[in-house]
């Protein structure tokens, strides 16, 4: 697990403490897997944007649709 994945898992746990990370499908819809609504997702994006100093524009939301997609996206924009 790299630093990005660890950070994403930490923030997800803060928002959805009732979901075991091991129980989710990392390629499926992130909001469905973690039972997040739009406010939860906004909190996640806000927290990750602050943590990594990246803008996380809404236009890029489609690239953050699953856990794996989100981690890849972050790795790419943090470069």
């Amino acid at each position: 697990m790299n630093a990005t994945q660890r950070a994403v898992q930490e923030e997800l746990h803060r928002i959805a403490p009732d979901i075991e990370f091991e129980s989710i499908d990392a390629d499926e819809d992130l909001r469905e897997e973690f039972d997040m609504d739009s406010m939860d997702f906004l909190h996640l994006v806000t927290a990750l944007g602050k943590r990594f100093g990246v803008p996380m524009p809404e236009a890029d939301y489609p690239r953050m649709s699953s856990y794996n997609a989100l981690c890849s996206y972050l790795d790419e924009v943090i470069e």
Binding site: L42, T46, P55, E58, A59
Partner: peptide, 17 residues
Amino acid sequence: LATLNSERDPSQRILLG
């Protein structure tokens, strides 16, 4: 909303709700 939010930091964005 998309236009409004495109220039905003996530902490300032507005949701449809």
